[in-house]
Nucleic acid binder design. Structure first.
Length: 933
RNA sequence: GCCAAAGUGGCGGAAUUGGUAGACGCGCACGACUCAAAAUCGUGUACCGUAAGGUGUGUGGGUUCGAUUCCCACCUUUGGUACCA
């Protein structure tokens, strides 16, 4: 006697989870003759709140694929681990003094317990934690490789720095074509050899892929650390929403810009959502244009119009509009500002520079449309028409992009137009189109006018002609520009990987390989030191052979930028991954996770993968071949409505009659929109004496779909669902909610349908008394047809990641078999195998009830047989003028003429035709008949 | 502003090489079982209309024998991005 009851579910789920664990059912071995499949979830940061039902969505999907691929004959790598370094544990440490390691360990424990009870097929022996010294020693090792390499543009590859110094000794840097941070001074081999060690290192820092430099950083005072560009949103920190300001600081950076072109091109080779690719393309921000120099002429007051030796270098994508330039604009931080400002204008310019400097990022962003600037008093000469144009400064020009200076063409650029209007600067039309006095006209298709030799050309041709001219005059050249900046790679924080770097006389040195890992020392407090050093400055006796270590730690993305390699060979003590393991597993075949990592993790991972490939450590150019972004599961918040100034609450349907304030109410106190009034009164003290205005005797709550969050009392914990319905029901319901990629609200109400399905499915194997009852009779044709239709659909759906429709198909099949009272082994056995990726526990249990002594994990998915699906007749919908009016059954091989005759003769067509002959009859075999009257 | 995705019953959603719109499930209504309730099972359920019939996939046009599916314009929502020259 065994119903599919709550107790029975609990028993079988625990039984099989234990059995799978003791049998090592999910253990993956590398060396095998089978084809491989690598299915990976984005590993989570273990937060203190634990999992809510939204988190497992993607994990369930990848688990279904993994299990399916496995019974299709693949050797499947499906691991899980933890991105364990991170700010929340450290913030908690600052507040409480508890070591972030303890917090993290505790959270990981909770996560693992929650994950395990959902029945994922992870090989936990391959688990990685980024905060584990045995893991981060390899993060440090990879950092060292990056420090020891440079990007050779000639070979389009990263190369060892030793090769570079060899060349320096021979020929200096004359023949080197490298990606470097700024203009590097030329030197000969002799000069190189004569340099001091410090000078040599200063030069090398300009070449290294991981390098130290003084740069503008996003400083977040509240978090006490710098943040990378992708961690700053709308001028505040992504985590916590604290203000961020731009300051200059000595920092570790990663020369990701060297890979801009490859990161861009590689996007065309990978199967990712177009939206994410587009985000990366925008982030990289490639633009093709022209760099040219406008000579500066001395201030007008001197009357001297002779050219100065210096010029202002600008970058433009619209050299075709160069005849329309009426002024130049420099960023306030531009190095020439000070030099060119005239005495008269000095005060105004200084004031503007200091105001612009102190404006926070936040203010700048929110005041995008506000025009501000100052005139330097200096003039430049337009090399194309020799006109004198004033030089201004304004903060709409960014120091970090292009050359930090623009040639302003107010007629054909909106920002320049706004600026010209505001300061009464001339506006000239050089592109044919509407008048530009009131509004800039921006077009890439029109003809160029008022532009000397460019007149009559279309934009593209004029751009080419302009570049040719600039190069002919040797005042500039065509140039490709990228928006992407090098990535800041240091945090003034404790809970991260220490750098394997120490300093001798201020010069950074790497520790020996054999001394890795450099472990995180214990400290008394997790705050910065009194002197403003990072927390690691508090560590006692922490040094490398008497030399002080780097005190910043690596950012959160360090450990996650290579972890998919570690899973391939997680215990290797000699390498981060062995050549054999890497060549077998290659890259991730399916990566499921959130699109919020588009310009962070997903970009950095591609970057590191390429560097490691260039240096010969791995042989895959791209880490994640296919990616799917799962949508978010949103919470459904419930509201009660308090009449303002009272303790009376009015039911949702009547709230319009009062002035009310909506209050979030715990969703556990609401069933089908009706509030449990007693529970509500007991919830919080101030509600104890609340009164209620009801409708139809019930208090109805309002609803709203919002983010799932504690503060909105709408969090649904998977533990509760598992204990009420079981893991199999949870898994299938999450899939049943809708397409994986879409965001959708969670409503626990609907889960009954999936639960009932599993119970019905269970009942197919049992008689009315709950005893196993399987028949060995030969199934009917109809039963076979339904089975194979289901198998076909499941296979197609899994291959296209359309799991919601698979669940529906299982239901349809089960409904049919239930009404047909079919308990035949020949039907149920293939079906239970097909169900096993979705609901592994019940499938394994029923599999054993079918008499199998080996696990269903070792079974083979039964592919559908098309011969069962062949139909010989079809019930045609008969539509008249496009509206379906009747159905008629015809053999599929019946000639069209015969069908037409029968249709025209039919009662229904006769009725609508009212005696007239039809104008036309369209017959699509196996689809439809349409009669046009 | 720009880029991307999406708008279908009371709700989640299904159907796109153009061919029966609303599969499957929730909810709801009615019925069975029960002293009763819960659970369970059955029937019905896009909308208007007693019916015949009509109307319906964000809005307005178009192509077609036939449009949720293709084309044009617009509206709304969500995500991303933001003075990138």
């Amino acid at each position: 006697m065994a119903d599919y009851s709550k107790e029975e579910i609990k028993r079988i789920e625990q039984k099989w989870q234990e059995k799978w664990a003791t049998d090592g059912a999910y253990k993956v071995v590398n060396d095998t003759s089978k084809p491989k499949y690598y299915a990976l979830d984005m590993f989570p940061y273990p937060s203190g709140a634990g999992l809510h039902v939204g988190h497992p969505l993607g994990y369930i999907a990848s688990d279904i694929v993994s299990r399916y691929k496995r019974i299709k004959g693949f050797n499947v790598l499906h691991p899980m681990g933890f991105d364990a370094f991170g700010l929340p544990a450290e913030q908690y440490a600052i507040q409480t003094g508890q070591h972030p390691r303890l917090t993290t360990e505790k959270n990981i424990e909770t996560y693992k317990r929650q994950l395990k009870q959902i029945g994922f097929s992870y090989d936990w022996d391959r688990e990685v934690q980024t905060s584990d010294p045995q893991y981060y020693r390899w993060t440090q090792w990879i950092f060292m490789q990056l420090f020891n390499s440079w990007y050779n543009k000639n070979t389009d590859s990263a190369e060892p720095i030793s090769k570079l110094t060899l060349e320096f000794e021979k020929n200096g840097n004359a023949h080197i074509n490298a990606v470097v941070d700024e203009a590097v001074a030329a030197f000969t081999g002799m000069e190189w050899k004569a340099k001091s060690e410090a000078d040599k290192e200063a030069v090398l820092q300009q070449y290294r892929i991981a390098y130290l430099s003084e740069t503008m950083v996003n400083w977040c005072a509240a978090l006490g650390t710098v943040l990378s560009n992708d961690e700053v949103k709308d001028g505040v920190s992504e985590r916590g929403g604290y203000p961020v300001e731009r300051i200059k600081m000595m920092q570790w950076s990663m020369r990701i810009t060297a890979y801009a072109e490859r990161l861009l091109k590689g996007l065309d080779t990978i199967d990712w959502p177009e939206a994410v690719k587009e985000m990366q393309r925008n982030w990289i921000g490639k633009s093709m244009g022209c760099e040219l120099t406008f000579p500066i002429v001395k201030g007008q007051e001197s009357g001297d119009k002779s050219e100065a030796s210096e010029g202002i270098k600008v970058f433009t994508t619209r050299i075709d509009t160069v005849f329309g330039v009426t002024f130049l604009v420099l960023a306030p931080e531009h190095e020439l500002v000070d030099k060119i400002t005239t005495a008269e204008q000095r005060a105004k310019v200084d004031e503007y520079v200091s105001v612009a400097k102190n404006r926070s990022e936040r203010e700048r962003m929110s005041e995008v449309k506000r025009v501000s600037g100052a005139f330097t008093g200096a003039y430049a000469k337009n090399p194309f028409n020799n006109e004198l144009i004033p030089i201004w400064i304004a903060d709409y020009v960014l120091a970090g992009y292009g050359t930090g200076a623009v040639m302003a063409v107010p007629g054909h650029d909106e920002r320049d137009h706004r600026f010209a209007k505001h300061y009464n600067l001339p506006i000239v039309q050089v592109v044919e189109g509407p008048d530009v006095i009131e509004e800039a006209f921006v077009s890439w298709e029109a003809k160029i006018i008022n532009s000397g030799f460019m007149n009559g050309m279309v934009v593209d041709d004029a751009i080419q002609a302009g570049i040719d001219k600039v190069e002919e005059w040797k005042i500039g050249k065509g140039k490709i520009n990228y928006r992407m900046r090098d990535a800041i790679f240091g945090r003034q924080r404790y809970w991260g990987e220490p750098f394997p770097v120490y300093f001798v006389n201020g010069l950074p040195k790497l520790v020996d390989d054999k001394d890795l890992p450099v472990t995180l020392p214990d400290i008394d407090q997790y705050k910065p030191t009194e002197t403003g050093e990072p927390p690691l400055g508090r560590a006692k006796d922490w040094n490398y052979k008497g030399h002080s270590y780097e005190l910043t730690t690596m950012p959160g993305w360090a450990g996650s930028s290579w972890y998919w390699f570690r899973y391939m060979d997680p215990k290797n003590e000699n390498q981060f991954v062995s050549k054999e393991a890497q060549q077998y597993w290659k890259a991730v075949d399916l990566y499921i996770g959130g699109s919020e990592h588009a310009t962070g993790h997903l970009l950095y991972s591609r970057f590191w993968c390429k560097v490691l490939k260039d240096l010969g450590h791995v042989d895959s150019e791209e880490p994640f071949l296919k990616m799917i972004n799962q949508g978010h599961i949103q919470g459904v918040s419930k509201f009660v409505y308090r009449i303002n100034g009272t303790k009376q609450f009015v039911s949702a349907g009547l709230r319009k009659q009062y002035e009310v304030t909506p209050l979030n109410v715990d969703i556990n106190m609401v069933e089908n929109d009706a509030l449990d009034i007693e529970a509500f009164k007991n919830w919080r003290e101030d509600f104890a004496d609340a009164t209620f205005i009801l409708e139809d005797g019930r208090y109805i709550c309002g609803s709203e779909v919002e983010k799932m969050s504690k503060s909105k009392y709408n969090v649904v914990n998977p533990d509760d669902i598992v204990s009420a319905y079981g893991a199999d029901t949870l898994r299938m319901y999450e899939m049943f909610l809708g397409p994986l990629e879409l965001s959708k609200p969670w409503a626990t109400n609907g889960i009954d349908g999936v639960y009932k399905f599993l119970r019905k499915f269970w009942n197919l194997f049992h008689d009315a008394n709950g005893n196993v009852a399987i028949s060995n009779d030969e199934p009917t044709k109809e039963e076979y047809k339904v089975l194979h239709k289901t198998l076909k659909k499941i296979e197609e759906d899994i291959e296209t990641f359309s799991f919601n429709t698979s669940v529906s198909e299982f239901m349809i099949c089960c409904n049919f078999l239930t009404s047909a009272k079919c308990n035949k082994r020949a039907i149920l056995e293939p079906l239970v195998i097909a169900l096993s990726p979705f609901a592994p526990h019940i499938a394994e249990e029923l599999w054993s009830k079918l008499g199998h002594s080996t696990s269903i994990l070792t079974s083979k998915f039964v592919s559908f047989d098309p011969s069962f699906l062949i139909e010989n007749s079809f019930e045609y919908p008969i539509s008249i003028n496009g509206k379906v009016r009747a159905k008629m059954n015809f053999a599929l091989d019946m000639p069209k003429e015969d069908i037409e005759k029968l249709v025209i003769a039919s009662e229904i067509v006769q009725k609508w035709a009212e005696g007239k002959p039809p104008k036309k009859v369209i017959i699509v075999p196996g689809k439809i008949v349409n009669v046009v009257l």
